[in-house]
């Protein structure tokens, strides 16, 4: 891993984001809008808003990062820039880490803005620390990024990549404890959910909101998933075609 190339890679991805004000606006405004809608949907049941809104703070960055990573990587493939990079000295790990750092920073800003809005404007009560919540949200974003990167190799077009969201992300979302606590699900579903990264991401955000115990275990498990997914992603980036 060469630090100069890593910085160059990160800078380039951030620059591309910066040149795209519409995406930037959607990145911050749409989660805020959704939070506001949630607040009024649960107007008569504020406890439920507490539960759902907290988890949503982790879900937004993940969904967004999944989408922008899979589309961005596919765009690199289809425009030929990925091949251009594969014949340059840039390493695959540098390519992936560059995207991870750039989008990780974007999700840092997003999580900070959206959680602040939820806390100060919408009156979301968190028992834990906001900074821990932001940390958990970034972990969630990185999971979205890693899954997006992994699926982008199985998709030939942006069209297909987007279809992976209902196919891969939504089942995880349903099993993650967002709808009902995982413990209350039938045994077999609970067991399956133990093998899905998203479950730990939602657990972590929920623990921070309620200040119930440490999220150290959850983040360790998430890092393990990240390592697996990112190395799977780097294996599928081929310098040579058959």
């Amino acid at each position: 891993m060469n630090i100069n190339r890593l910085i160059a890679m990160t800078k380039r991805v951030l620059l591309q984001l910066w040149h795209d004000p519409r995406t930037l606006a959607l990145l911050f405004l749409s989660p805020a809008l959704l939070m506001t809608i949630l607040k009024y949907v649960y107007w008569t049941n504020p406890d439920l808003f507490q539960r759902v809104a907290g988890s949503m703070l982790g879900v937004f960055p993940m969904l967004v990062m999944f989408l922008i990573t899979s589309v961005a990587t596919l765009r690199e493939r289809s425009s030929g820039t990925l091949e251009r990079l594969m014949i340059s000295p840039l390493g695959k790990a540098e390519f992936i880490a560059g995207y991870a750092i750039a989008f990780g920073l974007a999700s840092l800003v997003q999580a900070t803005a959206v959680s602040s809005y939820a806390i100060w404007v919408l009156g979301l009560k968190i028992a834990g620390l906001q900074i821990t919540l932001i940390y958990a949200a970034i972990l969630d974003a990185l999971i979205g990024l890693a899954i997006g990167l992994a699926v982008s190799t199985f998709a030939k077009t942006e069209f297909q990549a987007i279809q992976f969201m209902p196919a891969i992300l939504l089942p995880q979302l349903l099993l993650s404890g967002l709808l009902i606590p995982r413990e209350a699900m039938p045994r077999i579903l609970h067991d399956i959910s133990n093998f899905l990264p998203l479950s730990y991401a939602i657990d972590a955000t929920r623990k921070v909101i309620a200040n119930q115990g440490s999220i150290l275990n959850d983040s360790l498990i998430i890092f393990l998933f990240l390592a697996l997914l990112l190395s799977a992603g780097s294996l599928t980036l081929k310098r040579q075609t058959k």
């Binding site: 060469n2 591309q16 340059s88 000295p89 840039l90």
Partner: peptide, 20 residues
Amino acid sequence: SVYSDLTCIQNIRYFASLYS
């Protein structure tokens, strides 16, 4: 194969920075 959402000089600077 260039990045259409970067300027010319940013494209070249980026590619150049990948080489030692």
